[in-house]
Design a protein around this nucleic acid. Structure first.
Lengths: 114, 114
DNA sequence: ATAATGTATGATAATTTTTATTAAACTTTA
DNA sequence: TAAAGTTTAATAAAAATTATCATACATTAT
């Protein structure tokens, strides 16, 4: 899937097929899958972690109103890691860009109120 | 300060001066201060939120080993918001870059083991 | 087949982090 | 200096995640 569900949202989806599955099983398998590189665990803004079926490097945008997370399809900035390495004594491993904005659904909601 | 303490770390620091202060008071005031723009609330990777005394736009790096968060002093990419706006139907509000890496302390730790 | 061993599960408890509640202490205003 | 307003510490509650463990399920060996 292309959405970025939280563990609870995955639980709700999976339960439609496997009604007796436990939330712990969902957490455990999401963790195992992200450890083995099948999925990504996103530590984006908000209170919950989110999971991403696309493991190739890409960026995200998070709606400041509803918290929804979507992919942002812009070019990955490979060179920025070297730039960062020059002005830091960390060994740079990678980077992630998180945009914040208002999704079209929430923009429409806002319009309704005026 | 230039570090990026969690609420609990702030609590520990403040308690040295005000031993009877409560953790709730720390959370409440950090929240109020970030709402009014005196400080930043960082929603970076890891399980806890962190707070930043520097409110001017800048980027961060997080140590994958110990979780420490530092500033990365590279130029802020103003134009990237417009790039993102073109390939998204979100109304873009801003962005944040979080690098991941290994801090010098943890690099030194690693050396010790060899 | 079936017994023995290994692995994953659901149920539940425990932990961690943050937010909410509230009576009392402190401040400001009248 | 009394009344009203605000902030606090203490505590409870909520939200998210991780740990525990007996049992169910699957695999392998006999």
């Amino acid at each position: 899937m292309t959405s970025h569900p939280t563990a609870n949202e995955v639980y709700d989806m999976v339960r439609k097929r496997l009604p007796r599955i436990g939330l712990g099983t969902v957490y455990r398998n999401l963790e195992l899958m992200s450890e083995s590189g099948i999925i990504l665990k996103l530590e984006v803004g908000g209170t919950q972690k989110r999971f991403d079926a696309t493991v190739e490097s890409h960026y995200h945008i998070r709606c400041s109103v509803c918290g929804k997370v979507d992919d942002i399809d812009i070019e990955v900035q490979e060179e920025i890691n070297e730039t960062a390495a020059k002005s830091s004594n960390y060994k740079i491993l990678g980077h992630h860009i998180e945009f914040s904005g208002i999704c079209d659904d929430c923009q429409a909601e806002e319009q309704k109120l005026h």
